[in-house]
Amino acid sequence: MAQAEEQQSGDALLTLEIWHPDCWTLEVTDEAPASLLAQTVFNAADGRVKGHFTVYGDSTEDIDRLVQTAAESRLTHSVTEMQNQYGVNQNRAPPGNATRELLVEYDPENTISDALASHGFIQEGPVRVQNGTEYWSVFVSDDDRDRLNERLDDIRDSHDAEITVTKIASQSSSGGNIIDRIALLSERQREIFELACRHDYYAWPREVTTRELADEAGVSKTTLLEHLRKAEAKLLDPAIDEATDSL
């Protein structure tokens, strides 16, 4: 059973990693080298679910492959490319190097969002789907450890799901929508930034040198610092224009 590192009091912001069967977003991101952001999802009158998704990746070829995989999936009814980013802040830098907006129609029984909401987990921002895993940021009204795990176990059992709590933070210390901002990073920027965090690069005193990080990442020191600079800029200022970012 997954448990968080520490217990907070009051409202909490949780980061969840989720896998569950028969989910088209998980299957297509596992097969194709691109990722998804679930922007807006709603139940249509015909009983199906319609969702607005941003596809992002390192190249248009990667995005083409994901769109094709989604269209051919047994779990989708229709996949339509959108010309405009409805409901998305145009001033925000797109995640990755290339993006595309999709409207996807699928069946509600293959989603886990209703189960999370009914158990008191309120979605905080867009859901990132990458490499066959969903990354959720959710609020809970209380963070009692026993009740939290009981509710998560109910969802695990009912949906045959794998759910891991990777972080719990109080609402006041969550830093706004920083988890949502992480989705603005390209794949490589996220990899380098997370590598730096794992090795306490941002600790004081610093636990690793930039040369050591660069060697582990397999890049030059200059390239590593460029990745970190752009990642830090996006995380600190989500409105920054990195549309021409080639990393």
Rank of each mutant, 00 (worst) to 15 (best):
M1T: 08
E6S: 11
Q8N: 07
S9N: 15
D11E: 06
A12R: 11
L13W: 06
L13D: 00
L14P: 07
L16E: 06
I18L: 03
H20R: 00
P21Y: 01
T25R: 00
L26I: 08
L26K: 00
D30K: 01
E31T: 13
S35V: 00
L37N: 04
L37Y: 00
A38Q: 07
A38N: 14
Q39D: 13
F42A: 15
A45I: 12
R48H: 06
R48P: 10
V49L: 14
G51V: 10
T54M: 08
Y56T: 10
D58C: 07
T60Q: 15
Q68T: 12
E81Q: 08
R92F: 02
T99Q: 01
L102G: 03
P108D: 06
N110Y: 12
I112Y: 01
A115S: 14
V127Y: 01
R128S: 03
V138Y: 03
S141E: 11
D142A: 12
D144A: 07
D146F: 12
N149E: 08
N149D: 09
L152I: 13
D157C: 05
S158I: 01
Q171F: 13
S172P: 06
N177E: 15
N177F: 13
D180Q: 13
I182M: 14
I182P: 00
E187H: 04
E194T: 03
C197G: 05
Y202N: 12
A203N: 14
P205C: 02
R211T: 10
E212L: 09
E212H: 14
L213F: 09
A217E: 00
L224V: 05
E226G: 00
E226P: 08
H227V: 05
L235T: 10
